[in-house]
Design a protein around this nucleic acid. Structure first.
Lengths: 363, 363
DNA sequence: TTGTAAGCGTTATCAT
DNA sequence: ATGATAACGCTTACAA
């Protein structure tokens, strides 16, 4: 069954059937209803490849998760992101192609790139994490593939949160509690968001006139285990254990809490903890985790709608959208448990508050 | 740049270029090298839609995760499955389309089905979870879409583990420890694997002559929280707390352990715990979780390769493949921590050991 | 409002 | 081994 046959059965031309299917207003009611009846009766569905070939649009977008993030298993970040992207795709009748490169296989990554991007399997692509030095973002621009970065990028359209200001706020809050020896468990230097959060940590200390102590900065990779190990090192410092720790993600915070528990220390009495992400998961424990909450699925949804816009108007200026975050105060930072106060960064289109990202016009 | 132009630049016909691209042996070395040079030079990549239209194959497969599983966030099962599927797709140069239905929106689910399956966006589909009464599996067969079920199904090709035998083994092990009051935290009745694991639990008790006590069977939904709540109820039983609990998933076991911790009870002294899945994640805690370990990514990889086979030979008999599981004994069941013994179910093609699944010929 | 006809960029068949 | 040429099933001017 194809357009031709539907046309024959409804006594109209192929073009008219095509118009009906594509909701073209230039069709008479009688023709439309006849065609729709035939379509209904035969449960006809137009062939995707033929549509794509003729219209030069596939109604598919890609979600690219870089090979550098080997922590997909241990961090609920990606499942939540995918959920947001999928939901938006479903609403807009777009298909989603998952592009995950193998971790250490550039040849394979290149094959995937060629087939999917240059072969025009998709109309546009969402890049999920700003990796320092990642060539992918530059290439899609060269190949004329519409793209949206979740994270920061000077020329691509972006959806992001203000990582630096959010982190600064969290650490300032710890300082307000009276803590002065505040540690940070940071993510990889190759991931932009990790650097921005570390920047926010430094800024907050500077603002309070607290000297920076490098031994208070632990290195993690966003996995729970790395958080636990970094915490172990921080508690072993010759200079003594810190009064508080700001973890670059809730998952690393969970690891830190595990270490703290195992050593028989208590939170927040012995050491206060604040995380970053606002994963539902971390609500369960006692005391529950204070954190910078962001809507990860919201990032995904916004990225999709932005991308669809850009597919329609590839030459419009690339917008940079920033979503709000909330500082959610619960038990682990020293606030009474079940207390929830909010301090929001502003949601806006433009540049983050510190104006470090190259700006672009709003859409 | 298209085939035509490559042909012109290499001084051959379009057909020859097509043959080169598709590794057709009937091309002279001279022609092949000339064509390859031009392709290389212009970085040519054939258009996916045109290929699909002419060849009637898209080189894309779908992974369908049913809307019934609302627990995607809280369970690392799906990320790991996706990883296995993606890896296999990458190796075989197939693209992966994610199909996740919204939870309570049949109309939207239907739209997705029509567009993707009937519109022939994909060459085949992997169905990720056997849901009782789910019409999807039946429909793909009707629509002539090759499919592989991860789980059980009478007519479709399947990749699965022997849930019942694995669960029986785990519970038998608890019985061997001397426990007689053994609880089970089970998954939803709509999910086949949950029922099979519950069956295994009952069988093990029967074999040992231990009477079934319904109050020892807690209901969960595979989320950590549901495990915690079920455990709370089990510990509150008027008949007293059980000596051991077999959880239908590691995630629910983690919830149960949380409850046990919070009540100040200790594992395995006060209560022994065995989980199911073998998530890396659960290795970290003390005592670490004894569990039935399965290779979730292996299920995904096998499903892909099986699916590709079926796309090539849709009329071959549908194989049922069973992967091994291991009973991994660590601290939580009462075995000394760091002790690891293995009891494997056998990996095989055919029917599970209890022969409850309709059999099919091996491929 | 409708139909005609020319693509879209491949693959596949059939000669040569 | 190579080249014409006809599909593949749709969209989209352009005509009517």
């Amino acid at each position: 069954m194809n357009l031709e046959e539907v046309a024959r059965l409804s006594g109209v031309s192929r073009s008219t059937v095509s118009r009906v299917i594509n909701a073209d207003p230039r069709v008479s009611e009688t023709a439309r209803s006849r065609v729709l009846a035939v379509i209904e009766q035969h449960n006809f569905q137009p062939n995707a490849a033929a549509r794509s070939l003729a219209s030069r649009r596939t109604r598919m977008i890609g979600l690219r998760i870089p090979g550098e993030v080997g922590f997909i298993f241990s961090d609920p970040y990606f499942p939540e992101l995918v959920q947001g992207v999928v939901d938006a795709c479903n609403e807009l009748d777009y298909g989603l192609m998952l592009m995950m490169e193998p971790e250490n296989d550039p040849a394979s990554a290149e094959r995937i790139y060629q087939r999917v991007i240059r072969g025009r399997h998709i109309d546009g692509v969402i890049l999920s994490t700003s990796i320092i030095g990642d060539p992918f973002a530059g290439r899609v621009a060269v190949d004329g593939m519409p793209a949206v970065m979740i994270g920061r990028h000077p020329t691509l359209a972006t959806v992001d949160i203000d990582n630096r200001e959010s982190a600064r706020g969290a650490v300032s809050h710890l300082i307000d509690h009276g803590y002065r020896s505040i540690a940070h468990i940071r993510g990889p230097h190759t991931i932009a968001a990790a650097n921005e959060r570390a920047d926010g940590y430094l800024i907050a200390l500077n603002e309070a006139g607290i000297p920076i102590d490098d031994s208070l900065i632990g290195q993690g990779d966003f996995s729970e285990n790395s958080g636990a190990m970094a915490m172990t090192a921080l508690l072993d410092r010759p200079a003594g254990r810190p009064e508080a720790v700001f973890a670059g993600s809730d998952t690393m915070a969970a690891g830190a809490l595990r270490t703290i528990d195992q050593l028989g220390l208590s939170v927040p009495a012995d050491i206060a903890v604040i995380g970053f992400d606002g994963l539902r998961h971390q609500l369960q424990r006692h005391p529950s985790l204070s954190t910078v909450s962001q809507s990860i699925s919201g990032l995904g949804r916004n990225a999709v709608s932005l991308l669809i816009d850009r597919i329609a108007e590839p030459d419009a200026p690339a917008p940079h959208v920033y979503l709000t975050t909330q500082l959610v105060l619960r038990g682990s930072c020293g606030c009474g448990d079940s207390v929830t106060e909010f301090a929001s960064t502003r949601s806006r289109i433009g540049s983050p508050s510190d104006a470090l990202v190259a700006t672009a016009d709003a859409s």
